[in-house]
Simulated scan of single mutants.
Amino acid sequence: MRLFKTCLALATSLLIAGCAPQPTPVTDTVTNLDAEAYMGTWYEILRLPNSFQEGLHQVTAEYRLNEDGTFEVTNRGYNREKGQWSTAVGKASPVEDMPGSFTVQFQWPFSGGYNVVELGEDYEYAIVISNDHDYFWLLARSPNAPRWLIDQTLAKASSWGFDIDAMIETRH
């Protein structure tokens, strides 16, 4: 009888969880990323908190295209508490048959997904997420992105299931 009650409770929990509203998954990346247009300096506007960027302000990412189609990434941010700059250099490799998706590695053997899910028409902004939804960035070509872009991005992030209350607006 105890086993029956346990199975019934488990089945009920799964049924209730299945009825809960689910966030809209982000499955599509941009379909035609022009790698050369994407290169250059980007300013971080929004991010989900993460351990490797803790306490960083004035965050930028600079991309340089390599001859083999990969690109070098230099991320930089200023830690005001420590009074010093933090820099990380990595390499991004395109994922075959998935435009806008890359595998980024800053420290061997660790790598992660870098997925460009939205780009401004003139590459003035980009929304980037990881494969597991643990990371989210809004990048722009200027450190002063318009408020409408930030609000629009937060609305999209919320619909995609990201915790927008945790988002950090980067100070420049």
Rank of each mutant, 00 (worst) to 15 (best):
T103N: 14
Q152V: 07
W85F: 10
E81R: 13
A61G: 14
E72M: 13
Q84T: 12
K82R: 14
G55C: 07
L149C: 02
Y125P: 04
E72V: 15
G18D: 06
C7Y: 14
Q105I: 12
D132M: 06
Q22G: 03
M98G: 05
E72R: 15
L14G: 09
M39S: 00
Y63S: 00
Q53E: 15
S158E: 14
L138N: 08
V116I: 15
N79V: 09
W42A: 01
F106V: 13
K156R: 13
L46I: 06
K5L: 15
D134K: 14
R171A: 11
P99K: 00
I129K: 08
H133V: 05
L56C: 09
Q58H: 12
N32R: 14
P21S: 14
D122N: 15
P99T: 03
N131D: 14
S142G: 07
T153I: 04
T29N: 10
N131S: 14
F106P: 10
D34I: 00
K5S: 13
S86F: 11
W160T: 06
V104W: 00
A11P: 01
G40L: 02
A166H: 09
I127Y: 04
Q107K: 11
T74G: 04
A88G: 08
D163G: 02
G55V: 15
W148M: 05
S130K: 00
E124M: 11
V104F: 04
N32D: 13
A17H: 02
E36V: 00
N66F: 00
D151S: 01
G90C: 04
R171G: 05
L48D: 06
G40Q: 05
N144R: 10
W42M: 01
E118R: 12
C19F: 12
Q53W: 05
E81T: 09
P146Y: 09
P94S: 04
N75E: 12
D165H: 14
A35C: 01
I45A: 00
L138C: 07
S51C: 06
N32E: 12
R80S: 14
V116N: 10
A17N: 06
Q58C: 15
S159F: 03
C7W: 08
N144H: 15
P146F: 02
N32P: 05
